[in-house]
Simulated scan of single mutants.
Amino acid sequence: MSSISASAATIECDGNLSDIVITSAVNTQTNMEMVPTNESINASACAGFFEGNDQPLPTFNTGIWGDGLLNGEKHKKGATWFGAPGAFITEDDLQDLDGDGLVNDPGWIFLGKDDGKGFETTNLTQWFMDGSSFDLDRYLNINFSCAEECKSGDWSLFFPEPERMLAELASSIFGDRFFDHLAFSFKVGKNTIIYDFNFNMINEGLNDSFDLAIPHNFEGEFDLSGFAHDISHISVWARDPIGVTSVDEPLSLYLFICSLLALGLIRVTRKKESKLELWQRWGARKAAFKSFLIKNGHE
């Protein structure tokens, strides 16, 4: 089987782009196979080894700068794995996702991880204006198989209800756009290595075969047997562009909106609360989000 390469700019990496490949990509709308017969698609870029686990996870998981390792947040031990503009992207890919007037948000979203017990989809999905959560687990199935003490195997990423998923996403902060990058983070021994598929770049080699507005069902393979240690877990990220580069509304309004989006603040609960208690709880969380933005240079 031959492979298609779409290499990005050089990033220090101890692996090979062929360590993980896409062997099948089916457009869920047309049911057409995007990967040419007897070929596979190599990763576009990789980065690592980084020392340690791929922590911390995002706090809000909305793709803003400084929230999650791929969005420039420092590792829990203090090292910066990805500086500006963020992992595997250029300044042209940046967005203004928090409405602070700065086009500096990478847009990486954490999807979940498999630590050997099956893939666990993230619950950091409070992506609606009313603070409710998107049911990602319903619409996304990711699976990994492992062989040889978990050094190699197969992977798949399927969308069982793509049309319904897109309809629901249309009213979320991400709208009806779909991801243009897909990244896999492998914990190998005491280190982490991350591989990225950049579909903008892959499209250049496939005559724009991928319609990035439509979900695709993927299958692939990975082989990290060239490393001494086994894989202990695999995390998956996607970069979801929304096509917004600037805003004119006041920051105070967007802090309010972003607080609702990221934290899911004022919602009806089973426990009755007074209006005063609700506003006190909302004020505290809004202040925490504003403090986070200021800490990471958003104000």
Rank of each mutant, 00 (worst) to 15 (best):
S209P: 03
I214M: 09
P36I: 06
K117W: 12
D14C: 11
K272I: 12
G205F: 10
G175V: 09
A284C: 07
H229K: 14
G72T: 03
F128W: 06
D180V: 05
A228L: 11
E73T: 05
N198G: 00
S133V: 09
I194S: 01
F134Q: 04
I20V: 08
F174I: 07
S252H: 11
I257S: 12
E204F: 05
R281V: 07
R177H: 14
D154R: 08
S3A: 13
W282M: 12
A79M: 15
E204C: 06
V35S: 02
F179A: 08
I142H: 04
E12R: 10
N71D: 03
A284K: 14
G153W: 03
K187M: 06
F158V: 13
M201S: 14
P56G: 03
E12S: 11
K190A: 14
T59Y: 11
S225H: 03
L169R: 02
S185P: 04
S152T: 12
S3Q: 09
V26N: 03
C146S: 13
I266R: 14
W127N: 01
E91S: 14
C258A: 15
L206Y: 06
L212V: 08
Y139N: 05
G86N: 01
I173C: 07
T121E: 10
C150P: 02
A43G: 01
N31H: 13
F174L: 05
E39F: 10
L253H: 11
L206R: 08
D98N: 10
W127S: 02
Y195K: 02
D208I: 08
I242C: 10
A167T: 13
G101T: 08
E277F: 02
S156W: 01
T28Y: 05
E219Q: 15
K272A: 13
A47V: 00
W282P: 01
S3W: 10
A288H: 10
E221N: 13
G52Y: 01
F184Y: 05
N31M: 13
D93M: 07
D240C: 12
E149M: 09
N61A: 03
T30M: 02
F50W: 04
E221C: 14
G153R: 02
F60P: 00
S24L: 01
T80Y: 11
T30D: 04
A25S: 05
I22W: 00
F256T: 15
E277W: 10
P162G: 03
L136G: 00
D180C: 01
H216V: 06
S156Q: 07
K190H: 15
G101V: 02
L169W: 00
G118I: 06
L124V: 07
T125G: 04
T10N: 12
F119K: 00
S18N: 12
S152L: 08
A167C: 13
I193W: 00
F119R: 03
P215R: 00
N71K: 04
F174T: 01
L94G: 00
E219R: 11
L224A: 01
G283L: 12
L124N: 02
